[in-house]
Computed example of a mutant assay.
Amino acid sequence: MDNQIEKLDDHYIVCGYGRIGRILTQYLIQKYINVVVIEKDTAQAVQLDGDGVLYLIGEAVDENMLIRAGIRQASGIVAGLETDDENIQLVQLARQLNPDFFIVARASRDAFKKPLEDAGAHKVISPYDIGARRMAHAILRPTVIKFLETAFNDESTEFQFEEIRVRQGAKLANVSLMDSGIRQEMNLIVIAIQDKNGDMMFNPKADTQFVVGDTIVVMGSAKSIKQLEILMQG
């Protein structure tokens, strides 16, 4: 399995194959993203083999283990270990080994969000907090929740959300939203544009131009989204 991992590039490392780690890994694989799992529980090997996942058995908070998982060639890592202290150690070590890649960390309590961010995590997720908020929104805003569930349903081809990066040499680079044909010809709705500095513009005006490095958040059919992705490639 090490030989297969050595051939990977721009993959993601998922540390911890519990309930959340397994669902996350399967979702990424469905999106054709290569994944390597690091799991310390040897009993999980049967499940990992059955799921057809590339994996290593051992401690994720170990430099040699992360190097075996291809951390220097990876696009990012998910710190989903059992304790917050372990995740902080993992984030710190991962940041040292690859200063440029994307780090997502799980926090069991809000008190650990800032320490994880200070350690180097780009995004800190608290599943319990998200779950509670989701239930509250289901009570207070059921129609909004239904809309979002429809939009994020991967089986739907008629209605999806997606983010698309404007690449160097893209046909629509430096073209305004009004002149791009995104709305008129592709029937897509541009929800927001995030520039390369991370600043977000919601509901951009018609004369807003797409700039190389921008990330466009769009809503529409899978077919039209694919068409726009092609136009935004270099």
Results as ranks from 00 to 15, higher is better:
residue 3 N to P: 03
residue 6 E to M: 12
residue 16 G to W: 01
residue 18 G to H: 10
residue 20 I to G: 01
residue 27 Y to L: 14
residue 36 V to C: 09
residue 37 V to K: 04
residue 40 K to Y: 07
residue 41 D to K: 12
residue 42 T to R: 09
residue 43 A to S: 15
residue 46 V to M: 10
residue 47 Q to D: 11
residue 47 Q to V: 11
residue 50 G to P: 01
residue 54 L to I: 05
residue 63 E to A: 12
residue 67 I to W: 00
residue 70 G to K: 05
residue 70 G to A: 04
residue 72 R to A: 14
residue 72 R to E: 15
residue 76 G to E: 02
residue 80 G to P: 12
residue 80 G to R: 08
residue 87 N to G: 10
residue 87 N to D: 09
residue 88 I to K: 04
residue 89 Q to C: 12
residue 95 R to L: 02
residue 95 R to T: 09
residue 96 Q to R: 15
residue 109 R to C: 01
residue 110 D to I: 09
residue 112 F to G: 02
residue 120 G to D: 00
residue 124 V to S: 08
residue 126 S to H: 08
residue 132 A to C: 04
residue 139 I to K: 06
residue 141 R to E: 14
residue 146 K to F: 05
residue 147 F to D: 12
residue 147 F to S: 12
residue 155 E to T: 12
residue 163 E to T: 13
residue 164 I to W: 00
residue 167 R to M: 12
residue 169 G to N: 06
residue 171 K to F: 04
residue 172 L to H: 08
residue 173 A to T: 04
residue 173 A to N: 06
residue 179 D to V: 01
residue 179 D to R: 09
residue 194 Q to K: 14
residue 195 D to M: 04
residue 197 N to Q: 11
residue 207 D to R: 11
residue 209 Q to H: 06
residue 210 F to H: 04
residue 213 G to D: 02
residue 217 V to E: 10
residue 219 M to E: 08
residue 225 I to E: 05
residue 226 K to L: 11
residue 229 E to W: 04
residue 231 L to V: 00
residue 232 M to Y: 01
residue 234 G to V: 05
